[in-house]
Each structure stands twice: as C-alpha cells, then as structure tokens.
Design a protein around this nucleic acid. Sequence first.
DNA 1: ATGACGTGCGAAGCACGA
Length: 274
Amino acid sequence: MTQSNSASIVTWNINSVRFRIDLVARFIEIYKPDVLCLQETKCIDDSFPLNAFHKLGYPHIALKGQKAYHGVATISRWPIAETNRMEFCGKQDARHIATRFADDAHPALAGVDLHNFYVPAGGDVPDREQNDKFGHKLDFLSEMTSWSKGLSGKDTMLVGDLNIAPLETDVWSHKQLLKVVSHTPIEVDGLNGIQQAGNWVDVIRSHIPPEDKCYTWWSYRSPNWSNSNKGRRLDHIWANAGLAARTISVEVLRDVRGWDKPSDHAPVITHIKV
DNA sequence: ATGACGTGCGAAGCACGA
C-alpha cells in the first residue's frame, strides 16, 4: 500500500458500531486513517461488522466486545503482531484492548504498542458511598495507575474515551461542572495520577495550547450543540515522551459531530512521523 | 436549562450514557 512519511491514528467513541457503520464508512473515505480506535462498539465480537472494514481497506482488526454495553476495537491498515486484553476491577466488561504493530507495519507504527481504553462513565452522583459506578470509575483509575508504573518505556500510545475532562479549558464551565461527574477534582486527581505514574504526555494538549478551549463530546440533549458549545474533552491521546515527540499534529474533527445520526463524541486524529 | 436524547434489548420500558 502507499506509504507516506506519517501514519494517522484516530480515537472515536462511536456509540454503537453497527448502528453507525455507514457513518464510519463515510468518515474513513474522507480521513483515511491508518488506524481507527473505537469505543462503545456495543456488540459481541461475532456481531462486529468485520466485512465492512475489510472492504474499506482494514484487514487487521482487534476486538474486545460484549453484549449491548462498552466494547473496544482497533482497526488497522497495517499488520498487528500481538493483541492483549486487560481486565480491570475484576470485571470482564470489554474496556481495553492493546495491539503491538508488526515490524512490517508503517515505519511510524512498527513496534508501537497502542492501548485503546473505555473508562467507566461513573454514573450521576460523584460519591462512591452513594454510587457504585463512581467507585468503579475511581478504582479503574487506580488500576490504570498501577499498570502505568510498570510500563517498559518502549514507544506506547494510549487512546480512548477516558470520561474525564481534566483542565478548566476542557469543559464549557469549570465552575458549573466541578460537582458533575467527569470534571470533579477526585477524578481529575486520578487521571493526573495515571499520567504521572506512566510519564504520559497529553498529546492533544501538546498540540492544542492548554489555555484554548478543547472539547470532544457534546450532549445529544442540546439541540443547538454547536452554537451553545457546552462540550467536554473526554477523549484522550497520550504517549511516552519519545513517541509524543514524533506526533506532528492533533485535530478534533468537530464537523463529524454535526453529520447525520452522529455519535455524541467527535473523532480525534493524530499524525505520527517516522 | 445538566437537558429539549440516543443506544441495545426485546417487544414496553428500562439500563446506561456523562
């Protein structure tokens, strides 16, 4: 296949890959990512629309799905050498898949480990005593911290819907969201703890200045989402310093949120140079 | 004005999202 001097990786919470397969196809035909990481695929692996992706030029697909909820998939034009699925919080709930790109993958990707995550949303009440889902989210973050401490230091990227908007500029109103799950201080502390434990670089914010507003999700409940722009940056791209230094761009593809029958998340794309 | 909604499942209305 044709090979440019950079490779692109997209992360996108698709909110049902079967319901939105035509939307994904439209996206692929325009943006032609080398690798597409989906979250909330919402189907078992046997129901995943593999043939559609094969026809679109993606022979290499790693899946971790379950019935109705969650589910992640990493869809690649380039060969995958190894796939690994981690479980968090003792649950088999399809929130992680890792792929290592083969030596004959695009040279920007060869040997890179790519972790695709769907972190628990956490429910409504930001108190683990009142809300088990919030406790699950915090525990999940703690396990991600422990895991990050053991990373080898090889080129590694972590993408996905982490369901936390850490910076004040990652939400439409810092004050109004301080007690809203996704932007509470305890969640932000948890996310920062993972970053520090793994020496992760926030790749989106290394390309988009932290003082600039940046959102990747807008609620379905806002009929005028684009003008009201009450978004949050819930989707993330992290990397070790060496790989982060090879990223040459990041873009939140906000227009895709405005397509017909959209996901409530926009795709985020990064390009990695050789 | 954090909702004025949208998925899957299963066949109505609930679970879940965030």
